[in-house]
Amino acid sequence: MYRYFLVIVILIASAIPSHAQKYTVEKSTVIFFSDAAIEDITAENSETSGLLNVSSSEFAFLIPIKKFRFDKSLMEEHFNEKYLESEKFPNAIFKGILEGFQFDKAHQELNAVGKLTIHGIARDVVIPASIERSGNKLIARSKFVIKLEEYKIKIPQLMWQNIAEEVEVTVEFIYKPL
C-alpha cells in the first residue's frame, strides 16, 4: 500500500511540470538568400509556427510559404506560383529530434535530425543548430544550404539565369514555455 502511494505521489508530482515541457515559437525569422550572377534574391518570413518538447527533444516547424516577403512583389508572386507552388504545397515542414539536447545547458551546439518537407518533397536531413537559454526562453539559431534540385524546385533556364541552384537559409526562433 505504501509502495503504491509513493508511485502515485511521484506520478502526480511529475505530471504537474509536464505542461512546461512544451515550448512554442514566439518570434521567428526565416531568411533565404540566393546569390546569383545577375540578381541577389532575399526573402524573409516571420510567421513560422513551431513546438518543442524539451523532455523528449522532439520538435516540429510549420513555415507558411506564402508569408515569405520579397523586395519585389512580382518575384513573390512567381516564387509562390511557379516555383514553390504554394497553393498545392502551402507549408514547408521540419519535424524531428534535437540530438543530445539538454534542457539545463545555457548554450549548446547540436544537430537537428529529422524530415524536411519543401514543395511536397520530404528528405531526411541533419542540420546543425545552436540553442541558448535566456531566462525562461530558448533561442535556436541555424544556417544551412538547400539545393533546389533535391526538392524538385525548377530553376528557370529561360532568358535570365536569375535564381541560384542553392539557397542559403538562416533561421532564428525564440521559444517560450507553452
Binding site: I12, S49, L51, A60, P64, N80, E87, I93
Partner: peptide, 30 residues
C-alpha cells in the same frame, strides 16, 4: 493516473501545429 502521461508522450507536435494553421485562409495569386 498513467493515461495523461502516456497520451502526452504520444501526441504529434506537427498535428497540433497544423490544426492551428488550417484556420487561416490565404488569397489566391495570379
Amino acid at each position: 493516473l498513467l493515461i495523461p502521461y502516456v497520451a502526452f508522450s504520444q501526441e504529434d507536435l506537427l498535428k497540433e501545429l497544423e490544426s492551428k494553421e488550417s484556420e487561416k485562409s490565404e488569397f489566391v495569386d495570379a
